[in-house]
Nucleic acid binder design. Structure first.
Lengths: 247, 247
DNA sequence: CCTCAACAACTGGTAAGACCAATTATTCCT
DNA sequence: AGGAATAATTGGTCTTACCAGTTGTTGAGG
């Protein structure tokens, strides 16, 4: 019937890259000249596309600074109102874990079925980074590496909606990590089994054994949940001891 | 502290002219070269402004024909950009179903364990509304009632994060309903089993039988997924037949 | 005199190059 | 080592030119 404007095609391509996760929220786009050359279009055409996405709220541009994928408006709509809530009631962390328990099994299952060679390499890379970051001075580094590993598996499931949901959940978790979650990464007796679980999950996924992958993910989450509960219980005991001393 | 982009200033000026009636809906704008000269700006800048207003739905442009003020525009369209992105890809409906498949089972499970008497009453009310709305002139009514029913169960699971996630997913589903999803509610041979599944899900939940509730939810989602695939296949076949007639 | 096809003059679409302005990273001096 | 001047990078704008559809005119043929 008709041919689309070039700027529309460009915008569409960029939007698809955002939707399928190739472009992360907050990520910086290549420079206009660079990107125009790589997409084999002129700079004005690329600019028109960027302007359009800009007015849609998908990109933000700072003069001399660069163009970025907008993160606020791309946040899954459920996270922002929840962040405040989550820091007020720490027990809702278990709510997040319940959801992960349900979702990560499915993610691992489909990742085992659908992952490409590229996906598998990324999963292995994330695993290595996670191992390397153990014992880092900042526990957040380890938490981020952990999240990146799990998200690489979600990405390999090739379910774009799932990817955005899980990203939102991890954002949610990391924004409230200061409570107790960081302890999970520092306790030595926890790290060993955690690492083994991660390895089993990775192996089952890259080998394409869907059922084993789902199983591994679920066992992992059960362990995390139990460990957290234990940490919380110890925390409560410590608080009580302190109150005993002061009162 | 302004330093507004020139293209934004131009767009603003044009929007003001539309707002105060200087430019009537349907009216043709001067040619780009002409207008650029009259506004004392370059043509690329003017074009960027036009592109932006184009993506806002304020202007329409026909190659070689001219640029016109859109007659009837300004639908609210205040959905999140992410939702808009994902709505454009029809296959994301199946992504949503995969996630629901994982989540609703868990939701039903915990709803059976944790729901209060008040929760159970609300679930029953939503079920009745759903039955009553069957055959409504607007299929969207039925879709909304369906969503409300499922959300009432999620609510009864007393997992606030899960509730927010599922709300987001239903928004996503409803925003892309026009594709095929509405057919799901209109086919008579689909309604009966759908209704039975809903009833089994409700009964298991209010009776507190967690495992049966999870089972019912999962069977329901499997059925929905299969039905949708079948509808899509029929749609493809119909399109092929049409092409056969015209070609 | 009317019809219609070819042509000419718009109009928007794309491209390339140049220069300005703001930001960011680097380097050098104190 | 700290901070200011500077160089490199990046977005913002302009000019020019040419391509591609649309529209209106014109002129030849009925």
């Amino acid at each position: 019937m008709k041919q689309q404007r070039l700027s529309d095609q460009i915008a569409e391509k960029l939007e698809a890259m955002i939707a399928d996760g190739s472009l992360m929220p907050g990520e910086k786009l290549p420079a206009e000249r660079d990107l125009a050359h790589r997409l084999e279009v002129s700079r004005p055409s690329l600019r028109e596309a960027i302007q359009k996405m800009n007015s849609k709220g998908l990109l933000t541009t700072r003069h001399g600074g660069g163009t970025y994928v907008c993160e606020e408006s791309l946040e899954p709509s459920f996270v922002s109102p929840l962040i405040a809530l989550l820091s007020d009631m720490p027990e809702s962390r278990y709510d997040v874990l319940e959801i992960r328990h349900a979702l990560e099994g499915t993610a691992a299952y489909y990742a085992a079925l659908r992952s490409t060679g590229e996906d598998k390499e990324k999963i292995k890379r994330c695993f290595d980074v996670m191992i390397k970051n153990h014992g880092s001075p900042d526990p957040m580094d380890e938490a981020r590496a952990d999240a990146a590993f799990h998200l690489s598996i979600v990405e390999a499931s090739h379910n774009v909606v799932l990817l955005h949901v899980m990203r939102g959940l991890f954002t949610l978790l990391q924004s409230s990590i200061s409570h107790n979650l960081d302890k999970l990464y520092t306790l030595p007796r926890v790290f060993e089994p955690l690492s083994n679980q991660h390895e089993r999950l990775m192996n089952a996924t890259v080998e394409g054994d869907a059922e084993r992958a789902r199983q591994a993910a679920q066992e992992h989450l059960v362990f995390v949940e139990e460990s957290l509960q234990q940490i919380d219980r110890e925390e409560v005991r410590k608080q009580r001891a302190l109150r005993g001393l002061t009162g």
